[in-house]
Simulated scan of single mutants.
Amino acid sequence: MGETLPKYDVFQAIADPTRRKLLHLLGDGELPVTVISVQFPMSRTAVSKHLRVLAEAGLVKDRKVGRETRYRLEAEPLRELQQWLAYFERYWDNKLAALKQYVEEENN
């Protein structure tokens, strides 16, 4: 049988500010869910649901250590996002170049 597609893609996963904060926290290293959950004004169950979305998008991996579940960032799927944003950088670069030119002309 064929490979099943993830339930969530990277874009859906990072759309939520809580999940973006989770990724930021995990960027510093692996953390247990108990430590992660105290960083948010929501229940541990709610944090776990956000972590599940990130895991289904391939952005985090979990592992059991005794009775504890630890999560770590998997940054590779973010490359898709980086490539998508890179396309639009030329528009930002053009706007910044035009602004620079305008400011320099005003100062002369």
Rank of each mutant, 00 (worst) to 15 (best):
T34D: 10
T45V: 12
R67M: 04
V10N: 00
R90W: 05
N108K: 10
R19T: 12
A75Q: 08
R67D: 08
V53S: 07
Q83I: 03
D16W: 08
P77H: 03
D16G: 06
T34K: 13
L73H: 02
D28K: 10
I14A: 01
V60I: 04
Y87A: 10
L99C: 04
F11E: 15
R79L: 11
A97T: 15
H24D: 09
E3W: 11
V35F: 03
T18V: 15
L51E: 04
I14Q: 01
M1G: 15
R70N: 08
A46L: 08
E105I: 03
L81D: 00
P77E: 03
L51I: 02
L73G: 02
K95L: 14
L81R: 03
L25M: 07
D16V: 08
T69H: 06
T4R: 14
S48I: 01
V35C: 02
T34Q: 09
V103H: 09
A75G: 13
V10K: 02
R52P: 00
E30F: 02
L85A: 14
P6L: 02
P17M: 09
F11S: 11
V103P: 00
L78E: 05
E56L: 12
S48R: 07
F40E: 03
V33R: 12
A86M: 13
E106C: 01
A15Y: 09
V35A: 15
G58F: 04
V47I: 14
L5W: 01
E68N: 01
D93G: 00
Q83P: 02
T34A: 11
Q82T: 10
I36R: 00
R44Y: 00
K21R: 15
D93H: 07
P6N: 04
K100R: 15
M1I: 05
D62T: 05
Q39W: 07
L96N: 12
Q12E: 15
L59A: 04
K61R: 14
